[in-house]
Design a protein around this nucleic acid. Structure first.
Lengths: 147, 147
DNA sequence: TGCGACTAGATCGTGCGCGATATAATTCTC
DNA sequence: GAGAATTATATCGCGCACGATCTAGTCGCA
């Protein structure tokens, strides 16, 4: 397929602008919700991951969020300094670092319970629209994986 | 509308993960395309903006990309150091800085002509799907503006 | 004319993202 | 079972993002 016609390239520009801006707008929208919890947006995503399935290795978390150790290591150390998680070398495989929630970290989940609802509300989209967008983005991401 | 039911909050989690991951995946996909041009993804977005409507003030660019001077000033200085743009104080209003393309900067547009098509191709989505996603994201962003 | 409010950019500090590289533990292979 | 290849995490450097703050230029209004 030829993708060099003006229509496509224009649309592609729009799309990359939109995705870029939408992601940042999402982050900004979350900020006031997360501030009381003392978490940044990426830190929150890591905590959500851990609330769902702790303990996880650094690599496990990275795989779920498409992040690498060079991003996660400092972030996890900050979470550890806050007393929310604990990092311990896996005794079975000393290369691995197991990340688990502390009691304080687990307790944060209840304090964050209202966040997803508020965020969904703030998008101004209906359930159907959220679902559609979810599908589109999953498809986009799975397409991009090929590259 | 109550947005505290598990279904919505779960979906909202998925959405914020997807948007986060899709944006990064987009950036990673662009990287090899932009490397020959010597541009990062945000730098490319600024150049696209300028190719469309140079000269623009720092604020104009910021408005189009939802970025502020604290992000743009260093980025534009790097583009200037590369010889792609020129920053000059607006003589009519000395508070403003007018950013214009140099001949080198203008010439980069032709060298980047293949990028949008390649990117659209890499998404693996059809034209209709790209269009739908574009609409969804625009709606999301306009909804988020209320916050 | 002069003072206060406002605006456009710049600067600073912190926290991601990520390519490149380093280190240490494990596994593979002969 | 010793050395090579692989794997998991850490470190380093650079470039965004963005809140907070600063400076300088402009405007409003008596």
């Amino acid at each position: 397929m030829s993708r060099t016609d003006p229509e496509t390239t224009g649309l592609e520009h729009m799309l990359c602008f939109d995705l870029y801006a939408a992601n940042h707008a999402f982050g900004r929208m979350y900020k006031p919700l997360l501030e009381p919890l003392g978490l940044t947006y990426p830190q929150y995503l890591v905590m959500v991951t851990l609330w769902a399935a702790a303990p996880l290795s650094v690599g496990d978390i990275g795989q779920r969020l498409a992040l690498e150790s060079n991003t996660l290591t400092p972030l996890l150390k900050r979470l550890e300094a806050m007393g929310l998680v604990q990092r311990t070398r896996d005794s079975a495989d000393e290369r691995r670092v197991s990340v688990d929630l502390t009691d304080t970290g687990r307790a944060r989940e209840a304090q964050a319970a209202h966040v997803p609802g508020c965020a969904a509300e703030a998008t101004g989209l209906s359930l159907d629209e959220l679902q559609a967008l979810h599908q589109q983005l999953r498809k986009l991401r799975s397409g991009l994986k090929r590259v």
